[in-house]
């Protein structure tokens, strides 16, 4: 099942960042081909306007959090303003590799779906814990990751742990090792579904072969 219609059907339809104002987080292989044909896809430096926008957004989010924590007290701003500015400047010091953006529509659908799944996961494990005979058939399975490195992958691995019956236990290269409470449950379908939802959340192109 696909969560939301993808914003772009084909990765090749992506416009170079210089004209879009917001660079895309591409799969590694695509980024590599981009380097081979510099004439088609120039290595555009991040636009000044876009950096400013991102900075302003971080300052806004951090200010709201600080304000909420301190009940909007004016005297607390003595610490708040330096802390907010320092925190907003941190991404400038870190590597620029991990660019990503959220699709607002995808985020809402993902949040609702995630809430339902985490309730299902908790009810499932609670019933198993209380059941006198404890229906468990635990074991490990592995799953090939196809999401790009960075935030989408981290989101995927953390969400697996809250889905019913699965726990992400390890990452070896491009495979994630998953511990299952019941090895008979259908892992591949559940994880392919989760992957499609995370692609929708981060506005990534969907896999072409995934059309259920």
């Amino acid at each position: 099942m696909r969560a939301t219609p993808p914003l772009r059907l084909h990765a090749s339809a992506q416009v170079p960042p210089a004209t879009r104002g917001e660079p895309q987080n591409r799969p590694p292989n695509e980024a590599a081909t981009g380097q081979h044909v510099p004439a088609l896809r120039p290595p555009a430096p991040p636009g000044r306007r876009e950096s400013l926008l991102r900075g302003a957004l971080s300052v806004l989010v951090l200010s709201v959090i600080w304000g909420g924590l301190t009940d909007w007290r004016i005297d607390a701003l003595v610490f708040g303003v330096p802390a907010i500015l320092l925190a907003a400047a941190l991404p400038l010091l870190l590597s620029r590799g991990a660019r990503w953006r959220l699709s607002p529509h995808g985020a809402i659908i993902f949040a609702l779906w995630f809430a339902v799944q985490s309730v299902r996961g908790a009810v499932d494990v609670a019933l198993r814990a209380f059941a006198p005979r404890m229906p468990l058939d635990p074991g490990f399975r592995s799953y090939a990751l196809s999401l790009p490195e960075g935030a989408p992958r981290v989101m995927f691995i953390n969400t697996i742990t809250l889905l019913p019956g699965t726990l992400s236990a390890d990452i070896i290269g491009d495979r994630v090792i998953i511990h299952m409470l019941d090895r008979r449950s259908d892992l591949d379908t559940a994880l392919a579904d989760l992957e499609a939802r995370i692609r929708a959340l981060f506005a990534l192109p969907q896999d072409k072969e995934f059309h259920t």
């Binding site: 908790a122 609670a126 814990a129 468990l136 236990a169």
Partner: peptide, 23 residues
């Protein structure tokens, strides 16, 4: 209860992360 009853560390982690998270 899961933490006490489940057989190994991985199953116990299931109980802790999921049930306590919803709790």
């Amino acid at each position: 209860v899961g933490l006490l009853r489940f057989p190994d560390i991985y199953c116990r982690l299931h109980a802790l992360t999921k049930a306590d998270g919803l709790g």
